Amino acid sequence: MDRISTPETLMTAKKRFPKYRLHKPRNRAVVTIDGRDIYLGTYESKKSYKRYDRLIAEWLVGGRHLPDDSETATDPNATTVADIAAAYWCMAEDMYQGSGELTCIRHAMRPLVHLYGDLPAAEFSPRKLKAIRNHVIWHGAPDPKKGRPKRRDRPLSRKTVNDYIGRIKRAFAWAAEEEKMPGEVSAALQAVKNLRRGRSAALEPKTVEPIPHEDVWAVLPHVSQQVAAMIQIQFWTGMRAGEVVIMRTGDLDMSDDVWTYVPRQHKTQHLGHIRHVDIGPK
């Protein structure tokens, strides 16, 4: 059974994490876990930090015990997790073109590739997915070009973490559907449940309340005429901000007192839904 942690216990436990250190005679990075030294590669190299982060993530998921199969030999010719992530990204660029979902997928793939990019996809397992989840809570999904992910001062929200893991599951489900990897892997990943309220170190998001009407109207004199019109349209119709921004005259049916707007792109477009927004009369 997984140990339930709170932000307070995790911050305290941080001081007791196995230390990344230098083995001077061999100029290698090494970490001691469960009484055994594990060499990580050249000291302060990206590869050594990646292996260290992976080991710590699996050590935490294992209740501060490293599974026996965490460091096993792999087939260099096998399809890797990074291969699956890259193929899924290419598909997503076509399917979600112009959608904010692309950014969400990019963020979800970062910790996946950082921790397990070189692992054969067939060896990816629910335990490894949970290790990514623990890592994401405190490290998020920073741009790899900016260096090794740093521990955050505050954990990510539970909803954000669940969304990341859900997108990773969908990536493996797609890969199984395309026969890029065994279907058993994707089926096993579905067993990993969403984090529940109060059962993890993830931050519980606050309920977002509606903005008072008077605050909306108070902004209008301080913005341009065009922005003021966009704010009012969004307020009265309930449109998403992205739908207001892309609205064109050609997208409006103005043949009646109540105009109808059909956005060219919208959130459920890929499901075959057609969205109609009624505007007016004022």
Rank of each mutant, 00 (worst) to 15 (best):
173 A>V: 11
174 W>A: 00
175 A>S: 13
175 A>V: 03
176 A>W: 00
177 E>M: 05
178 E>D: 12
178 E>F: 00
179 E>C: 01
180 K>G: 02
181 M>G: 03
181 M>Q: 03
181 M>C: 09
182 P>E: 01
182 P>M: 05
182 P>T: 03
183 G>P: 06
183 G>I: 11
184 E>N: 09
184 E>W: 08
185 V>K: 01
185 V>H: 00
185 V>T: 04
185 V>M: 00
186 S>K: 04
186 S>D: 09
189 L>H: 07
190 Q>P: 03
191 A>S: 15
193 K>Q: 15
194 N>I: 03
195 L>M: 13
196 R>L: 11
197 R>W: 06
197 R>V: 12
198 G>W: 11
198 G>Y: 11
198 G>V: 11
199 R>Q: 15
200 S>D: 06
201 A>G: 09
202 A>F: 08
203 L>C: 06
204 E>G: 07
204 E>Y: 07
204 E>M: 10
206 K>C: 04
208 V>S: 09
209 E>W: 07
212 P>E: 13
212 P>Q: 05
213 H>Q: 10
213 H>L: 13
215 D>K: 14
217 W>H: 04
218 A>M: 03
218 A>R: 15
218 A>K: 13
221 P>L: 10
221 P>V: 13
221 P>D: 06
222 H>V: 04
222 H>E: 10
223 V>W: 11
223 V>E: 08
223 V>N: 04
225 Q>D: 14
225 Q>G: 05
225 Q>T: 14
226 Q>R: 13
226 Q>I: 12
226 Q>C: 05
227 V>Q: 12
229 A>E: 07
229 A>L: 12
229 A>K: 07
230 M>E: 13
230 M>I: 06
231 I>K: 03
231 I>P: 05
232 Q>I: 14
233 I>V: 14
235 F>M: 10
235 F>R: 14
235 F>Q: 12
237 T>H: 07
237 T>V: 09
237 T>F: 04
238 G>P: 10
238 G>Q: 12
238 G>V: 08
239 M>V: 02
240 R>I: 01
242 G>A: 08
243 E>T: 04
243 E>P: 07
244 V>D: 00
244 V>T: 14
244 V>C: 14
245 V>K: 13
245 V>W: 06
248 R>L: 03
249 T>N: 10
249 T>Y: 09
250 G>A: 05
251 D>T: 00
251 D>A: 01
253 D>L: 01
253 D>V: 01
255 S>Q: 07
255 S>A: 03
256 D>P: 02
261 Y>A: 03
261 Y>N: 04
262 V>E: 12
263 P>L: 06
264 R>D: 02
265 Q>F: 07
267 K>I: 06
268 T>D: 13
